[in-house]
Simulated assay, not measured.
Amino acid sequence: MDATRAKQIYQSKDTIGVKLEGDSVWIENVDEANGMATVTVGNNPVNTVTVSVDRLQESR
C-alpha cells in the first residue's frame, strides 16, 4: 500500500480492513512524508507499532 491510500483509509468513515503480515490492524496515524504508519495490532490497544506503509495490505 502507499502512504496516500493509508491516509485515505485512516480518514475514512467506513471500516476498511488492513493487514500487517496476516494480522488485522487499525491505522492510528500516517506519516505521509516518511511513508510510515502507526498501527494497533489486533484488539490490544497497547500493541502499537510503526511500520512502513509498504508492509500494509488492504483486505478485500
Rank of each mutant, 00 (worst) to 15 (best):
Y10G: 00
S59P: 01
W26S: 15
A6N: 04
E32K: 11
T15I: 12
I9G: 02
A33G: 08
T50E: 12
W26K: 11
P45V: 04
A37D: 02
T15A: 12
N43Q: 14
V30P: 01
E21P: 00
A33F: 05
D31T: 11
V41Q: 05
A37C: 12
D2N: 15
I27S: 03
S52I: 00
T38S: 14
Q8L: 05
N34F: 09
I9K: 02
W26C: 12
V51R: 06
A33M: 10
E21F: 03
T15Q: 10
T48D: 04
V49R: 14
D2S: 03
I27R: 13
S12I: 06
A37E: 02
A33I: 06
N44H: 07
E32F: 00
T40E: 12
I27E: 09
L20F: 09
E32V: 15
A6V: 15
V18P: 02
V39L: 06
D54T: 06
A3Y: 00
S59V: 15
V46A: 07
V51W: 03
V39I: 07
Q11K: 13
R60P: 13
D23N: 15
V51P: 05
N43R: 15
R60E: 09
V51A: 08
N47A: 15
V41F: 13
N44V: 13
G42P: 07
Y10D: 05
E58F: 01
R60Q: 14
N34C: 08
S59W: 08
G17F: 03
V46L: 08
E21Y: 06
D31W: 04
D23F: 11
V39R: 02
E32M: 10
N44F: 10
T50M: 05
D31G: 12
Q57K: 14
T50W: 01
I27H: 14
Y10K: 13
G22F: 08
T40C: 11
L56Q: 08
E28P: 01
D54G: 02
K19W: 03
M1T: 10
T40A: 05
I16P: 02
A37K: 02
S59F: 09
Q11P: 02
A37M: 06
E58G: 01
T50I: 09
G35T: 06
T15S: 11
K19F: 12
N43M: 15
T50D: 04
Q11G: 09
D31H: 01
G22E: 03
V41T: 10
R55S: 08
I9L: 00
I16E: 05
K13R: 14
N44P: 12
V41R: 07
T4R: 11
V41I: 15
E28S: 09
L20D: 02
T15V: 13
S24C: 02
D54F: 06
G22C: 06
S24T: 14
K19P: 01
I16F: 01
V30K: 00
R60D: 11
N44C: 05
G35W: 00
D23W: 08
V46H: 09
I9P: 00
G35E: 08
V53F: 01
